[in-house]
Design a protein around this nucleic acid. Structure first.
Lengths: 209, 209
DNA sequence: GTCATTACGATGCGAACGCATTGCGACGTG
DNA sequence: CACGTCGCAATGCGTTCGCATCGTAATGAC
């Protein structure tokens, strides 16, 4: 077997160039030539790794979402023995777009929204975790009610829906520069305090415990 | 003076073709030829009324938003002596995308989001009313507090932010087929009930009072 | 009727597009 | 040390793009 390179590395290098272009000016800004230039490689290379433009875009979206998942996991690792609420908070915090890559990912997802209308594959990618996380949020809210922390008059399903919409919306505002991360965080924190009780919970594990 | 046509009519006919294309598959789907075909006119006509593609798109966005404003006004006309809360509720209701044209407009706004990043003109159009409406919402919430209808512990500014984000987010979900209008309406109504007290207020004026 | 002016339809141009093809240098295997 | 395969760079093709140009039919002022 001949010449070997790190295929995944090459593909992700190209995908990241796609991200930058999409994040900067939307899907229309993406052409094979532009991607090649942005990645600092030849157009032949791009075509070697992606048979079609469509495949390249889909790979970029998929990878962006995987990276976002990894960032959420990383947040959880920093917590000792995370419970369901920790998981929810980690997801919400990630969605706010404090991280530069997250903002990029949010912009990418927004750019793909129109495609989801008639492309089931894109729709599946974009909405993959929605139902699961909403259900999870509802459970956490119900749990807080059972513990007497949350207003028993709340409808967990509806509140979960609202929370999810709110976090998503704040993330988009941040990603498109309409709101600062601090503002978004303060707003979400305010909402969560009213929903689950004070957010002053167990702190993240400090470095070198 | 020679041949006269209804210039505004012609321009809006073309703009509506742009809407259909954008609403169907995003900004990338818009080319002069496609627009001409969709509108059932010649490409020359399109170019006659819009000097550049950019001008055409901007006109489309502007007109879509003006139509949305008009629909909100129309909602208000159906209410006898509307107060500040009626205005807020009319705006929110419109944002949910119950109307087909509104859904189209929401999809158009989303499609333009990336452009707002480095096009101040687009940004101004997209975010024109945000601050005003948020301030208005905050006032309405404060007023409800003063009347003892709303929880005095609420922060009107933050609640206004949340309400605005929520309505926008629900509208986007509806516009992209992720949620039914009924669901969105129920969710918003649930939230408003907790925020302002029962939504069972003065009904709209019935036909033929 | 004459004429200026508006409203277009038709056509052409250069650039950029996605994609296919070709060829060759680099490398692990025998 | 050949040989076969992989990793690309280069180039070309047909299409589509936005836009400019040009010709002409229609119309109201005189």
């Amino acid at each position: 077997m001949p010449r070997k390179v790190d295929v995944e590395q090459q593909k992700s290098d190209i995908a990241e160039a796609v991200w930058r272009l999409v994040g900067r000016a939307g899907l229309e800004a993406v052409s094979l030539r532009e991607v090649a230039t942005e990645a600092g490689v030849s157009m032949g290379r791009v075509q070697h790794y992606f048979r079609t433009k469509e495949a390249m875009l889909l790979y970029g979206l998929r990878l962006a979402q995987r990276r976002m998942h990894e960032r959420i996991e990383a947040r959880l690792v920093r917590r000792p023995d995370p419970d369901a609420e920790d998981v929810l908070r980690a997801v919400l915090e990630e969605m706010l777009g404090g991280d530069h890559d997250t903002r990029q990912t949010i912009r990418i997802c927004v750019a793909f929204l129109p495609r989801a209308l008639d492309d089931q594959q894109v729709a599946d990618l974009l909405y993959a975790d929605d139902a699961e996380i909403r259900a999870h949020a509802a459970r956490v809210i119900g749990q807080a009610q059972a513990q007497g922390r949350a207003d028993p008059g709340l409808d967990p399903e509806r509140e979960a829906r609202i929370l999810w919409s709110l976090a998503g919306s704040l993330g988009v505002e941040v990603a498109f520069g309409r709101t600062s991360v601090e503002e978004a965080r303060a707003t979400l924190s305010y909402h969560l305090d009213r929903l689950l009780g004070s957010s002053a919970r167990r702190p993240e594990r400090a470095d070198r415990t």
